[in-house]
Design a protein around this nucleic acid. Structure first.
Lengths: 123, 123
DNA sequence: CGGGATCCTGCAGGATACTG
DNA sequence: CAGTATCCTGCAGGATCCCG
């Protein structure tokens, strides 16, 4: 697979890496990964644990994460059909980073809010 | 400031934290912060260093980052007007995390691509 | 140079209904 | 239960022109 684009000025993160981070760090993915890192969950359990997500968005998020190897979709039984989502090893590998991000956001939230107030005042 | 929402089941990251991370981890912000961590840049310099970004998106990204206290907008001179964007201390505080994310993405890119191929094949 | 103002479009994502 | 299908809407974000 030859590299078609990128003259690579400096070290420049390629568009592929941005795309990957976009798919993994988006609005819902962060929370889904966070939840699944603690325990496997079924579709509706997951949905309940992230109250505001719609079914469609959750489905799309799970498919994307599954495609990127971050979570595993496991059909457990098949009476009324039960599906369990489990964190995959690739998902595990980013757990610390996600935790760190959540930690950073709680750590610095008040600073951010002060900055926002200042910015909005001075308009 | 009393807490209006959140029954706080488990520890649950609040919607505010998600929102903050959304505003800081989005498509362009990651790169802008990355660039500015290395050196202050003017608007068009920044634009050139992130080739695909449009003027509008870059402006919006910079405003958002400025509002959140992540970057400082400094009017340097004023002949044809020169504006410099500098990383702020809040921005610095997330630098390591962003580096770690880039590092993670390069580290695991091949795994992800293999997962994608598998997923797309079995479709 | 560093943007602001407009116009326009795609598509992410909500609401709703249906299915194996 | 775990989705798929459809319809619909907002708005992110591109293109273009203009300004101090």
């Amino acid at each position: 697979m030859p590299d078609t684009t990128e003259p690579a000025e400096r070290i420049q993160i390629s568009v592929h890496h941005r795309e990957l981070l976009d798919q993994v760090l988006d609005k819902w993915s962060l929370q889904v990964l966070d939840e699944l890192c603690e325990q496997p969950l079924r579709f509706n359990e997951l949905r309940r644990s992230i109250p505001v997500v719609t079914q469609k968005s959750l489905t799309a998020t799970l498919r994307r994460l599954e495609r990127n190897g971050m979570v595993d979709r496991v059909v457990v039984s098949s009476r009324p059909v039960a599906v369990e989502y489990r964190i995959a090893s690739l998902g595990r590998s980013i757990q610390e980073l996600i935790d760190a991000l959540f930690h950073w956001s709680t750590e610095h939230m008040s600073d951010v809010e002060r900055a926002r107030a200042r910015f909005d005042d001075e308009g």
